[in-house]
Simulated scan of single mutants.
Amino acid sequence: SRKCKAACINGREPRIDYSRCVACMDCIETCQHGAIGFRMREKAPAGQTEKNIIHQAGKNQTDHARRSFLTTTVAVATTAALKAQEKKVDGGLAVIEDKKIPVRATPVVPPGAWSARHFAQHCTGCQLCVSACPNNVLRPSADLQKLMQPEMSYERGYCRPECTRCSEVCPAGAIRPITVGEKSSTRIGHAVWIRKNCIP
C-alpha cells in the first residue's frame, strides 16, 4: 500500500479502490508473498458444471475479443475523422503552421513537477494531464525510458499562464497542485531561437 502510486490500496481492510487504480503493476512487483495478482475473474451461475463453465468461458473470451476489436476500430475511425476536421489553431486565436520538433537534451516537464527525475519516478503515464490540457501542449513521450509519460511540446500551442489543469488532475503526485501565482514564478524551460524556423 505504501508503494502504490495512486494510493488506492488500503492494507488494513484489505481493499483496493479500482476507480483510482491506474494498473501500474508496482504492487505485484513489490509483494513477495504472492498475495496480489492480476487476472480476469468470472462468477459461475448456480447449477453449472465445471465443464460447462470452461466451455462458456472460452465462448465469452471469443465474444469479448470480437467486441473489443470492433469497439477499438470504431473508436480509432471516429478519432481520425474528428482530428481531420479539427482546425489547427492556437487557443482559437491564430492559425498554426506545422513546425519541426527540436531535439531536446532534457525534456520539459509540466510546472508543478519537482524535477525531471521526480516526475519520471512518480508518473504512471495515465494520460489524464494530456487529455486535460486545453492547448495540446502536453503529449505522450516516445522515449522508451519514459514511454507514454507526458512532456511539454510547443509545436501545437503554448502553456497558458492562468491554466493549472494538469496539476489538478494528476492522481500520482508527479505534478503537485500549484496556484496561478506559483506557476507564473516557475521557470518552465529555456527558450532557444531556431534560425531555420524563423519567418521574418
Rank of each mutant, 00 (worst) to 15 (best):
S1D: 09
C4Q: 04
C4A: 02
A6S: 08
A6H: 06
C8R: 00
C8M: 02
I9R: 08
N10P: 08
N10K: 12
N10F: 13
G11S: 12
R12T: 09
E13W: 01
P14H: 02
R15M: 00
I16M: 14
D17K: 09
Y18G: 10
S19T: 14
S19E: 15
S19D: 15
S19C: 04
R20W: 13
C21H: 01
C21N: 05
C21K: 01
A23V: 13
C24I: 09
M25D: 07
C27R: 03
C31E: 06
A35W: 11
A35Y: 11
G37S: 15
G37Y: 15
F38L: 15
R39H: 04
M40T: 10
E42K: 07
K43M: 10
K43V: 06
K43F: 09
A44F: 08
P45S: 03
A46E: 15
A46D: 12
T49R: 05
K51P: 02
H55V: 11
Q56T: 15
G58E: 13
K59H: 10
Q61E: 12
T62Q: 12
S68C: 11
F69I: 09
V74D: 07
V74S: 01
A75I: 05
A75K: 12
A77G: 10
A80P: 07
A80K: 06
A81Y: 13
K83A: 08
A84V: 08
Q85R: 08
D90N: 10
L93T: 05
A94M: 09
I96E: 10
V103L: 09
R104K: 12
R104D: 05
P107D: 11
P107L: 13
P107E: 06
P107G: 04
V108K: 04
P110F: 03
P111E: 04
A113R: 10
W114T: 12
S115V: 14
A116F: 13
A116N: 14
A116G: 11
H118F: 06
F119P: 05
F119S: 04
A120Q: 10
H122C: 08
C123L: 02
T124P: 03
T124E: 02
C126H: 11
C126S: 13
L128V: 00
C129Q: 07
V130F: 02
V130N: 01
A132V: 03
P134G: 08
N135P: 12
V137N: 12
L138S: 00
P140G: 02
A142D: 15
L144G: 04
L147M: 12
M152C: 15
M152R: 15
S153D: 07
E155Q: 06
R156Y: 00
G157P: 11
C159I: 07
R160L: 09
P161K: 05
C163Y: 08
R165F: 10
E168A: 09
C170A: 01
C170H: 07
P171G: 00
P171K: 00
A172Q: 00
G173N: 02
A174D: 08
R176H: 11
R176T: 06
R176S: 05
T179E: 01
T179D: 00
V180K: 15
V180H: 12
K183I: 05
K183H: 03
T186P: 07
R187N: 05
G189Q: 05
H190W: 14
H190E: 15
V192D: 07
I194A: 01
C198A: 11
P200Y: 02
